[in-house]
Nucleic acid binder design. Structure first.
Length: 287
DNA sequence: TACCAGGAGAGCG
DNA sequence: CGCTCTCATGGT
């Protein structure tokens, strides 16, 4: 076991790790356990710092601070949001919500699997995929075996039927084709980050099964393009209810509005709206 | 049971 | 274009 303490305030681990950006974190008491690359990690927060434990000794923690985006000035991000009633409410409801910076392949593959799936189901499919095709990672003694997210080359070598057996349904051929293009070098994921946002989006949307929404998720959650603004069913509900309450706006119109209205950290604003709507939905449903 | 889920793509008028 | 249907599967 190895550990480290990182001073940071306003980091809501629960909101961040369960908000539908990443699908491999589970709550364990007051802590969160997950896999980042080849590392098993347990994270806990005490308000002014974040405590990390790993299964293996770590000398350079850059992979973790980068993933968690600890260097981000959240206050500055929040200040850049439009000062309207809806955004204020969203920020108050989940202060400390952050955007992660994930590996492009895991992020792309996960969101290909996400289409018309609930978050709990996406987690299940990803878990099955990792158990069957991921490389084992070192875990602390007493813990169940864990696996890295499968490499593109590994998935490129399996059959569509094998993938369907992981319960991903019609998404199987999409994931398979993505794995093949990345494994063959036809799609260079590492190069996308240095392209202009629009070009990177185009490249992603060349993939079958990847439209505007999934491409924007990858642009935001893996590459950190700050203005990428995924518009999904929840965000449509939020934008419709909060900003277009009178008339029914079309997707194209909402897309356009989102791209201009929310400022230089639109992606962050989007995640607050998304989380806010989901939490509100649960509250309403329970009461 | 009926409906919906962090969509995308094909078919149709 | 813009709308509708379909895709596979599980949760509520």
């Amino acid at each position: 076991m190895s550990g480290n303490v990182f001073p940071v305030r306003d980091y809501d681990l629960a909101a961040t790790l369960s908000s539908g950006q990443a699908f491999r974190w589970r709550e364990e008491g007051a802590a969160w356990v997950g896999i980042i690359g080849k590392h098993w990690v347990r994270l806990a927060s005490d308000g002014c710092s974040l405590v990390a434990e790993t299964a293996e000794p770590v000398s350079d923690w850059t992979w973790l601070t980068h993933y968690l985006q600890l260097e981000i000035d959240l206050e500055a991000v929040l200040r850049s949001f439009p000062q309207d009633e809806a955004m204020r409410a969203a920020v108050v409801s989940c202060r400390g919500l952050r955007l992660l910076r994930q590996g492009p392949w895991e992020c792309l593959a996960s969101f290909i699997l996400s289409s018309t799936k609930q978050i709990v189901q996406i987690r299940q499919i990803v878990a099955t995929l990792c158990e069957r095709y991921g490389e084992p990672v070192k875990v602390p003694s007493g813990y169940a075996p864990e696996y890295a997210f499968p490499e593109p080359a590994r998935l490129a070598a399996v059959s569509e039927a094998d993938l369907r057996a992981c319960k991903m349904g019609f998404r199987a051929p999409y994931l398979l084709e993505a794995a093949r293009r990345v494994a063959s070098g036809q799609l260079d994921l590492a190069a996308l980050g240095s392209l202009p946002e629009a070009q990177a989006r185009e490249r992603l949307m060349d993939l079958p099964g990847v439209g505007r929404k999934i491409a924007d998720c990858v642009l935001l959650f893996a590459y950190g393009f700050p203005e990428a603004f995924p518009v999904d069913v929840w965000v449509i509900k939020a934008l419709q209810k909060l900003y277009f309450p009178r008339r029914r706006a079309k997707l194209r119109r909402l897309q356009e509005f989102a791209g201009t209205y929310f400022g230089p950290h639109g992606g962050y604003a989007q995640q607050y709206l998304f989380h806010y709507m989901r939490v509100m939905g649960n509250v309403v449903r329970k009461s």
